[in-house]
Simulated assay, not measured.
Amino acid sequence: MTPIDAVGPVLARFRTAPTPRGEGRTPHNLAVLAAAAARDLDVARLAEAHLDATTILAELGGPAPAPGTCWGVWAAETGADPLHEAGGRLSGRKRFCSGAAGPCTHALVTVEGGRLFAIDLADSGIAVHAGEWHALGMRGSAAATVDLDDVPATEIGRPGAYLERPGFWHGAIAVAAAWFGGASGVAAPLRRAGRDGRLDAHGLAHLGAVDADLAAARAVLRDAATTLDTQPPGAWDVERRRALQVRAVVEAAVDSALTRSGRALGPAPLAGDAAHAQRVADLQVYVRQSHAERDLADLGALVPVDEDPLS
């Protein structure tokens, strides 16, 4: 499992204090996430969740995370015995809780009825079941099932505010920045082979295609980050469309890096480079936070009839 001292240096690089727009905070934070993901996707996944939690708390008027803490955001709504609240205390089960078996000290958790609560993971009513994650990918993200038994909790924002805020979609773009960093890391052996003259014409074609796809992903991420940093939030559907566009472009770059690196280089990097093999496995799991064709269908429903091609 990923320890907190592996995540801490990334958290320290974020610019998370509330500041006026236009100071470069969003481009900086997405660049930090992408750089971390190119090295270690487990660390980036945990750092992305902490950044999301920090943003949510600021947006909904909650307390700022204390120095030295690591927060998760546990919003999966699956399985039986969902969380419920009574008298400011939570009971029930939450699945797919990244960081629960690792560095997280606190978490934001969703509860039936669209409510959001903050909890301290040191509470004796919390039981973490860490042995249920069988995938080879993202194993270090310390995902687990968590049982809560009469755990004290602080409600954050009004019911429904977590999903209704424009910042929900800004967090979705941050996830894409981590995917992008992972794709860049996966493509590293292909870039090295090109630099060392080990690629034939077909291999160079794969490298060129990956380079173009990563450039497109980088461009949409930078444009989105600049927009978020310099313009006030738009309507909910505007923010949603932007996020879905970014995620679609980045997901295509991820698929390109995974598929074309394998086709160009064969099994050698997967068989002989443990770090690369782990990065591939991690990225294949992480990018499935996308909802694939369902996300594309949602994006298609948001496309206007007429739009300035250069607007």
Results as ranks from 00 to 15, higher is better:
Ala188Thr: 14
Glu59Arg: 15
Pro3Tyr: 02
Pro103Asn: 04
Ala201Ile: 01
Ala257Lys: 02
Asp308Gly: 03
Pro18Gln: 01
Leu41Tyr: 01
Glu85His: 08
Thr55Ile: 02
Pro304Asn: 13
Glu155Lys: 07
Arg93Gly: 00
Arg158Val: 15
Ala86Thr: 14
Asp150Phe: 01
Ala12Ile: 05
Arg139Pro: 00
Asp150Ala: 14
Asp273Phe: 02
Arg294Ala: 15
Leu30Asp: 13
Arg222Gly: 06
Asp273Arg: 01
Gly140His: 03
Ala47Leu: 08
Pro304Arg: 15
Trp71Met: 09
Pro267Val: 06
Arg115Leu: 05
Leu51Pro: 01
Cys104Phe: 00
Pro166Met: 06
Ile56Met: 10
Asp213Val: 07
Ser311Cys: 01
Ala188Ser: 14
Glu293Cys: 02
Ala275Thr: 14
Gly137Arg: 00
Arg39Leu: 06
Pro269Ile: 01
Gln284Arg: 15
Ala248Lys: 06
Ala47Gln: 06
Cys70Asp: 07
Leu57Arg: 11
Ala153Leu: 04
Ala144Met: 10
Gly114Cys: 11
Glu251Ile: 08
Arg165Ile: 12
Ala58Arg: 08
Asp211Ala: 13
Gly125Pro: 08
Pro9Ala: 10
Pro3Met: 04
Arg195Gly: 12
Trp133Ser: 05
Leu265Trp: 03
His50Trp: 05
Asp298His: 12
Gly22Ile: 05
Ala264Pro: 04
His84Pro: 04
Arg158Glu: 15
Pro166Gly: 04
Leu258His: 11
Ile173Asn: 05
Arg240Met: 12
Arg279Met: 13
Cys97Arg: 00
Ala127Gln: 13
Leu190Lys: 02
Asp282Glu: 07
Tyr286Arg: 14
Asp149Arg: 14
Glu48Ile: 10
Leu148Lys: 02
Val287Trp: 09
His129Cys: 04
Thr226Asp: 12
Arg247Asn: 13
Val285Gly: 07
Ala292Ile: 00
Ala209Asn: 02
Ala64Ile: 01
Val73Glu: 03
Val111Ser: 07
Arg240Ser: 10
Ala144Pro: 14
